[in-house]
Structure formats: C-alpha cells, structure tokens
Design a protein around this nucleic acid. Structure first.
Lengths: 197, 197
DNA sequence: GTCTATAAAAGGATAGAC
DNA sequence: GTCTATCCTTTTATAGAC
C-alpha cells in the first residue's frame, strides 16, 4: 500500500507554498504536481484556505516535536550538550528545503488574511521552546555548569544566536553553514559557562 | 508644486509590495491607494513587472546610499564608532516599515519570476557593503584599534550579528530592539578590539 | 493623463456524470 | 474519488473617448 492522495496533495502543496508563497501557488499548480485535476482536490479539502491551514498546523506540530528533548536524554547529557542538541534540532529543521522554508516564510511574512491565526500558533510554539530552554538552563545552574547569572538575558542571548543562524541558512551552502553554527555556539557557550566572564 | 503621480504610484506600490508581496498586491490595490483608476497606471509604467522592478532598483540604490560613510567621517571617527555607525545605518534602514520591509522580503523570498535579477542586485549591494566594512577594519588594524587577527572571520562575525538583528526587528518593539542592538554590538566589539581575547 | 469599456486569461469553486 | 464542463470573480492589459 502506498501513500494516500490526501497525503500527496499535502506534500506537493507544502513544497509549493514554501517556494512560492500562498498567493504565488495556485490550486492548478498543486493538482498538476500531484498528477490529478484541480476539482479533485475538493474531494480532500474544503478549499484553499483549509489546505493551507492544515499544512501549517502539521508544520507547527512537527517543529515542536523536532525540538523536544527526550526526558532520559535530559537526565544524562551535560548542559552544554543539551543546549547544543537543542540548537541543532532547530537548525536541522530549518535546513529542510520544504518544511523549514515554509516555517521561515510563514513566521516572517504571514499572509495577512490569517495573520492572527498564525501569530497565535507561533506564540504557542515559542512558549514550548522557551520552556525547554529554561528547563535546561535552570538545571545547568543547579549543577553549576552555567555561571551564576540571571536566566532571562541568557535566553535572550540564545535566541539572538538562533535568529542569526536562521537567516544565514538562506545564504550559505551546507558545509559552510554547519561551521558557522559550530562557531556561533562555541562563542555563545564561552559567555555562559562557569568560569566564563 | 506637489509630488508627481508617478512618484505617488511608486510610494503606494512600495508599501503594498512590502506588506503583501508581489502576488498579494493587485494593480487595483495600487490605483485605489493612489486615488486613480487602474488603467491610468499604464500611462506611467509599462506593466506590473516594470513598476515592481523600478521600485526594487530604487530600493537598492537607497540602501547603498544609506550605509555609505562620508569620507570626512571615515577620517575622523574611531574604528569602534565607525563600525557602530555602519551597523546603525543598516539597522535604521530595516526599521523603516516600507523600504526596510520590502528589502527583507525581497532578499529572503525573491519572487521566482525575477530571482536571478534580484540576486544579481543583492550581490552588487553586498559587495558594496563588504568593501566599506573591509576598509574600516583594515584602517582599524593599522591604527591598532583592532587586535591583530585575520579580517575575513571578523567580517563574517559582523555579518552574523547583522543577520540576527535583521530578524529580531520583526519581533521586538522599538525601544526594546534598540537595546538589543546596543548589547549585541558591545558584545561584538569586545572580541574585536585590541586587548579583547 | 485620466477615464469607461472591454478583452483575455487565470484563479477559486461547484454540479453532475462515471 | 476523479473527471469534464461550467460559473463567478479577479487580474492584467489594451482601445479609444475626453
């Protein structure tokens, strides 16, 4: 048994929305890519908005899952490794040419029509990631792997690092980019760890 | 004498393209915003692409001009002040709700149709900014205001800072954002200056 | 230069046969 | 579920009067 048509539609639409945006993508484009005719789409989705929103919804879920850290790993790893893992999870998600690209496009330039819906979803997602980040850092302070400083500025600082890498993925080819990630994280950790100034 | 219709069209279109993108903006939207009828636009521009490209072209010119540094200032200011001025010039450009926004949108998500044209323009612009940056830093090394290290990684590092702030302007309201800029630059300079590690 | 009228094409969406 | 045919609307673009 192979992949369902609904799933094929979502995958094709995801790619097109990511590359060309909501208005840049027509239902005809989607249908052609799947290999069916435009009206057949309506057997699977109410309309274009329904298709778009269902993709966005899955996207957010996938992102949250991607950056989550298993509790057993949370126990075993050092704070530095946890932070690096967390950053890598995000970065790997953005490396994806489809999901990562749509995530970026949607976050930075939400379609005006459902801006509030999108914003709400992102706030939830951000709350989720911030909770993980805070947990890692608080544990790091307890274990004295992170120097004794307030946590909020550290989180801010981490997000700044994250945002820079978020954009740089647009510009640099992969091996070069991976090195930037490495360097940036090293720099960040230097200022966070116990003994760092 | 007041502003010409052509100019009004370009200003209105600039705002709309920035906020809603190329495909999200119809010529009807533009005409309505200007207060004329759609066909009147064609007395000023060949077609939609012509209007869009002429706006992009001006945008790049304005950006280049914004980040340029007068030679007399180049002589007088310290390296630290020059770098800060240079960063502020870019950041101020992105603060603009219209030009800055269109710049970001175009750079990150160029319309597929003229992707190559756009990319070419950005490469020229980047060459321009990099030249300024290199000039500042080389002078800084000669004057021993910057520690004796290779310049390329320093430029990379500066661009990383720039990219992070580029994105963060989407998320933070102005007074908060200005503080982020301040902090991020301070952090950058610490690692660059003579005596910094 | 700006308008009305209109063409020509594309996009979203539905009806109904198979 | 998928197709053809069709509808309605929007969009880009042109023709021609004023």
């Amino acid at each position: 048994m192979s992949i369902s048509t609904s799933e094929q539609i979502k995958q094709s639409a995801l790619q097109l929305f990511a590359q060309k945006g909501y208005f840049g993508t027509s239902l005809n484009d989607v249908a052609t890519k799947v290999g069916i005719k435009k009206p057949s789409l309506y057997a699977h989705f109410k309309n274009k908005d329904d298709l778009y929103l269902s993709i966005l919804h899955e996207l957010m879920d996938t992102f949250k899952e991607s950056v989550s850290i298993d509790s057993s790993i949370m126990e075993q790893y050092s704070t530095k490794d946890l932070l690096y893992l967390f950053l890598k999870n995000m970065v790997d998600f953005w490396k994806d040419e489809t999901m990562g690209l749509l995530y970026k496009r949607t976050l930075l330039f939400p379609e005006e029509h459902f801006r509030s819906t999108i914003q709400e979803q992102f706030l939830q997602t951000e709350a989720h990631t911030t909770a993980i980040l805070r947990e890692i850092m608080e544990k790091g302070k307890r274990k004295q792997e992170i120097s004794n400083q307030p946590i909020e500025p550290l989180i801010d600082s981490f997000y700044c690092l994250v945002d820079g890498l978020f954009v740089q993925r647009f510009f640099y080819p992969l091996p070069q980019y991976d090195m930037k990630v490495e360097h940036a994280f090293t720099h960040f950790w230097k200022a966070a760890e116990t003994g760092g100034e």
